[in-house]
Simulated scan of single mutants.
Amino acid sequence: MTGPRTKRLIPIAVLVLLAVVLWFTLFRDGRGGAGDDLIASGTVEATEARLGFPATGRVEAISVREGDAVEEGAELAFLDRLEMTARLEQAQAHVVSSRALLLELERGFRSEEVSQARAALDAANRRVDDAKQAFDRTKRLLEGGAVSQEAFDRAQVARDVAESERTRAEEQLRLMEAGPRRERIQAQRAQLAQAEAAVHAIEAGLANLTIRAPFDGIVTVKHREPGEIVAGGTPVLTVMAPDDRWVRIYVPENRLGAVGLGASAAITSDTYPDQEYPGEVMYIASEAEFTPKSVQTTEERVRLVYAVKVRITGDSALTLKPGMPADVRIALEHPPS
């Protein structure tokens, strides 16, 4: 038989149950008394670059330490470059010599060289005249029986040799006056271009032996030490962009429509519970993160969540670090009823 005390406890239990249901309805999605905010937990992330060398080699030096701030383009580490530097110097010397030869061909022969060729031709003409006179004299003497046939043959050979030398001197003078052939100049230009291409290829190889900062950032991890042999693509340093950090949270499907790009947010962390950092919504995923991506019942559809990135806009001291858990409160555009 139910006593009076039991009857009095039943209404109290009902009221407590109703209060629990009401609290769950109001606060289950992170809505406080104002009903205009969405609260979600996530993790701080940042743009990071894991930097390595395209080529395999021995690490000669690493010029930064963990925590150092670096500027875009700064040299952070490099492999042994002695052999490649020597090859570059050799290729550059080849370029210098090829360019000098091309310049000489384009300018043609010097006036002094042309004058020397003319003088050589004049000398050849005089030798021809002397040889002809000697030949004519020897011929007359031979007809008079004053010299032998052998002497006549020698005079004839000397005349022929002098005429041949004059022909060569004439050809040499014509070549100098005309200058180098166009085909030879073009061939030399091609050799110069080939030498310059070799220099560019070696310079590209040297660039692959150096790690440079891809952006302004902070060195967060030093994976290797000088003297180690590293394979191509192996991370040597990790650099973080401190101005590009965000908190990744997940919003239920039934609350997604109230979250807009650019919406203001407040970020807190367990490490610094009394500090609040401003932020704004920078990205809303277009597809649900969980599978299956399409379900049939209403009860299951509301369990789908969408990734949302909230950019950290007011943490110049870099208090919020990648990997740190954080809570985000977003001001909704039109809170659901």
Rank of each mutant, 00 (worst) to 15 (best):
Met1Arg: 11
Arg8His: 08
Pro11Tyr: 09
Leu15Lys: 09
Ala19Tyr: 10
Leu22Pro: 00
Thr25Gly: 13
Asp29Lys: 12
Gly33Phe: 15
Ala34Gly: 07
Asp37Ile: 08
Leu38Cys: 05
Leu38Ser: 01
Gly42Phe: 03
Thr43Cys: 02
Glu45Gly: 01
Glu48Trp: 07
Gly52Phe: 10
Val64Ser: 02
Glu66Asp: 07
Ala69Glu: 11
Ala69Phe: 13
Ala69Lys: 12
Val70Met: 10
Ala74Tyr: 02
Arg81Asp: 03
Glu83Ala: 07
Thr85Arg: 11
Leu88Asn: 00
Glu89Ala: 10
Ser98Ile: 03
Leu102Met: 08
Arg107Cys: 01
Val114Gly: 02
Ser115Trp: 11
Ala120Tyr: 05
Ala123Ile: 11
Arg126Gln: 15
Arg126Gly: 08
Lys132Thr: 07
Leu142Cys: 00
Gly145Arg: 10
Gln149Phe: 07
Ala151Val: 12
Ala151Arg: 15
Ala155Tyr: 01
Gln156Cys: 00
Ala158Ile: 04
Ala162Ser: 11
Glu165Asn: 13
Met176Lys: 05
Arg189Pro: 00
Ala190Cys: 04
Gln194Val: 06
His200Thr: 11
Ala201Ile: 09
Ile202Phe: 09
Leu209Ala: 15
Thr210Gln: 03
Pro214Thr: 12
Asp216Lys: 08
Gly227Thr: 03
Gly227Ile: 10
Ile229Ala: 11
Ile229Leu: 13
Gly232Trp: 14
Gly233Met: 12
Thr234Val: 15
Pro235Ser: 14
Arg245Ala: 02
Tyr250Phe: 15
Val251Phe: 05
Pro252Thr: 06
Leu256Cys: 09
Gly257Met: 14
Val259Ile: 14
Val259Gln: 05
Leu261Tyr: 10
Ala263Lys: 10
Ile267Tyr: 12
Asp270Pro: 03
Tyr272Ser: 13
Glu276Tyr: 05
Val281Ser: 04
Ala285Ile: 11
Ser286Glu: 15
Glu287Ala: 15
Glu287Asn: 12
Ala288Arg: 09
Gln296Lys: 14
Arg303Cys: 02
Leu304Cys: 03
Lys309Cys: 01
Ile312Asp: 01
Leu320His: 00
Pro322Ala: 14
Pro322Gly: 05
Met324Ala: 04
Pro325Thr: 04
Arg329Val: 02
Arg329Leu: 04
Ile330Pro: 00
His334Thr: 07
His334Trp: 04
Ser337Ala: 14
